[in-house]
Every structure is written in structure tokens, then in C-alpha cells.
């Protein structure tokens, strides 16, 4: 554990809770892509199956359970409890376009040809692109509420901080995980455009608007 990794995890937890709290307090899922949330739930379920057979630390276990339960809760709120407020008409990104390539990539790049390692690889690739339905939705509606922007910023920062963590771990312990690093870089690049808009608009008190 190093400071970058810890800050990344804090940012990740913050993102998850910003989203849950926003939906809960406004009693609305407007502007949130249910499809992205389903993809994130698949990511956590596929990656954290090792909960049952490998124990790393209490911190690790608690975080894994937290991400699985929070993402399931988010999906439940969007598709069941506040279904009437969910903007399904604008949430039209075809998730098979990210599910199928992630699965194929997992079969090509993995650390061993076992079910759990394939699931792990798949989850890493899927996580990199799971935000696409949400970004697509923001582009389609042309704007995002400020809290949604904060959520996206925290979620994007998490993987960017992990990149610093990987650089640090490479120099201090020789740890190098090419699959996570490559996917993590792609994931961070996807947020760059958003980061720019966030800094130039949201942080200056304006609403995030995308030009058509």
C-alpha cells in the first residue's frame, strides 16, 4: 500500500458513494446510465470472485464487498426503486460492443488459462470501457448535472492515481502487471476529454455542457 494506491481507492469509494447518495437524495436516476452501472456490477462480480478463496487483507475484503454491494444497490435503485425517473431513451449504448471485445481480449491476454484468471482479465478490460454508456449519454443529452460530473471526476481520478501507484510499485518492488497497466491507461485516456471540461467548466461554477 502506498499513498497513490490509497488515494486511488479513496477516490473510487467516493465516486461510488457520490452516485448512490445523489440518486437516493434526489430520489431520481435522471442523467445516470443504468447500462454503465450494470457493466460495473459485472466488473466487480467477475473480479472479486476470489473473495471465496484468497484472503489478502481485511482492507481488501471490505473494499471488495463494498464495491459489489454498492454497485448492486445502484442498479437496483435505477431499474427498480426509481425506475420512473430513469432516462432510458438516452441510455442507448449497445453494451455487447464492449462485453464481446472484453471477453475476446481476456481469452488472448491472461496470466493463466483458468476460469478465475480469465474472469479477472475480462473484468480489467471491461472496467476500462464500462463508462462509455455514461459518457455517450452525456454527449447525447449535451449536459451533465454537477453531481454527476463530480462522480465522473472521482471515478476517472481513481485509475489515474493507480497509474502513479503502478509506476511507484515498479520502482520500489519491481511489481509490473501489464494487463492492468495497459487497460488502466486506456481507461484514463477515455476520461481525458471529460477532465478537461470538468476543470474548465464545472470547477468554475458552470454546468458541464457538451457541444453537439
Amino acid at each position: 500500500m502506498n499513498l497513490f494506491r490509497l488515494m486511488g481507492d479513496v477516490s473510487h469509494v467516493l465516486a461510488v458513494f457520490i452516485l448512490l447518495a445523489k440518486i437516493w437524495r434526489t430520489r431520481s436516476a435522471a442523467g445516470i446510465s443504468g447500462r454503465s452501472q450494470i457493466l460495473f456490477t459485472i466488473v466487480y462480480l467477475a473480479r472479486y470472485m476470489d473473495l471465496f478463496f484468497s484472503f489478502i487483507s481485511l482492507y481488501n475484503t471490505v473494499m471488495k464487498l463494498l464495491f459489489i454491494s454498492a454497485s448492486c444497490a445502484t442498479v437496483y435503485l435505477i431499474y427498480f426503486k426509481f425506475r420512473a425517473t430513469y432516462d432510458g431513451n438516452h441510455d442507448t449504448f449497445r453494451i455487447e460492443f464492449v462485453l464481446v471485445p472484453s471477453l475476446l481480449l481476456a481469452f488472448i491476454f491472461h496470466y493463466s488459462m483458468s476460469f478465475f484468471e480469465l474472469a479477472w482479465s475480462f473484468s480489467i478490460f471491461l472496467e476500462a470501457v464500462a463508462i462509455l454508456p455514461q459518457l455517450f449519454m452525456v454527449t447525447k443529452t449535451g449536459e451533465a448535472e454537477n453531481i454527476t460530473s463530480h462522480y465522473l471526476f472521482a471515478l476517472g481520478s481513481y485509475r489515474a492515481l493507480y497509474i502513479l501507484n503502478w509506476i511507484y510499485r515498479y520502482y520500489t518492488e519491481g511489481h509490473f502487471d501489464p494487463i492492468a497497466v495497459c487497460a488502466g491507461i486506456v481507461q484514463t485516456i477515455l476520461y481525458c476529454d471529460f477532465f478537461y471540461l470538468y476543470v474548465t467548466k464545472v470547477l468554475q461554477g458552470r454546468k458541464l455542457q457538451v457541444l453537439p
Binding site: R47, I56, M63, Y111, S112, H175
Partner: peptide
């Protein structure tokens, strides 16, 4: 052995 057969990150 795989470089990361033991996944210790989230």
C-alpha cells in the same frame, strides 16, 4: 509463474 497470479489490488 505469472507476474500477477496473486492479485492484491482492487
Amino acid at each position: 509463474k505469472a507476474p500477477n497470479s496473486f492479485h492484491d489490488e482492487l
